[in-house]
């Protein structure tokens, strides 16, 4: 069985806390963190849209993504923009990248305090039916699942 390296355990905690903070403050959206797992060893959400950022640091490189089923994403955008959305529109799509941006910014502060200097690339958005995120590495993909009344979402982290 594949186990996550120690570095990833720090990342799980840091990024989970950053995601909860971002959703709560920016989107008035309350979620709960589930039990993290390695991709292929747990139940994932069927993502319709994801925001992805490439990371580089003094000790690793990798990618991190936040992925949402359509229903969850629309509920989160509704909270962020103060209106309700029934369908996905192109105008909402950059919201996935912006949320990833904010989650990263939140996490970066904590990671800096732990001695990791992390820089990021410009975030991108992928969308589609049950979208598969292409990470730059073949290392195991860590999934941090979140639950909410509007449905699930997940963060994917790959580091090497």
């Amino acid at each position: 069985m594949t186990t996550a390296p120690k570095l990833d355990a720090n990342f799980i905690k840091t990024f989970a806390a950053a995601a909860l903070e971002t959703l709560r403050v920016q989107c008035s959206f309350e979620a709960r963190v589930g039990k993290p797992f390695i991709k292929g060893q747990g139940e994932e959400v069927e993502s319709a849209i994801a925001g992805i950022i490439g990371l580089t640091s003094n000790v690793f490189k990798g990618t991190i993504a936040i992925a949402f089923p359509e229903k969850t994403f629309l509920a989160i955008m509704g909270g962020m923009l103060g209106e309700s959305f029934e369908v996905m529109t192109p105008d909402l799509e950059d919201g996935a990248a912006e949320l990833m941006n904010i989650v990263f910014g939140c996490a970066k502060k904590s990671l800096s305090e732990k001695g990791f200097t992390v820089e990021r690339a410009v975030p991108t958005v992928v969308k589609g039916k049950n979208v598969e995120i292409r990470h730059i590495s073949t290392a195991p993909i860590l999934i941090i699942p979140f639950e909410s009344p509007a449905g699930g979402l997940q963060i994917e982290i790959v580091l090497e």
């Binding site: 920016q26 955008m77 962020m80 923009l81 103060g82 105008d91 909402l92 950059d94 919201g95 990248a97 912006e98 941006n101």
Partner: peptide, 11 residues
């Protein structure tokens, strides 16, 4: 550069 954030700030 993010449209959604411009909307958030405007609102």
């Amino acid at each position: 550069d993010m449209r959604t954030m411009r909307i958030v700030i405007k609102k």
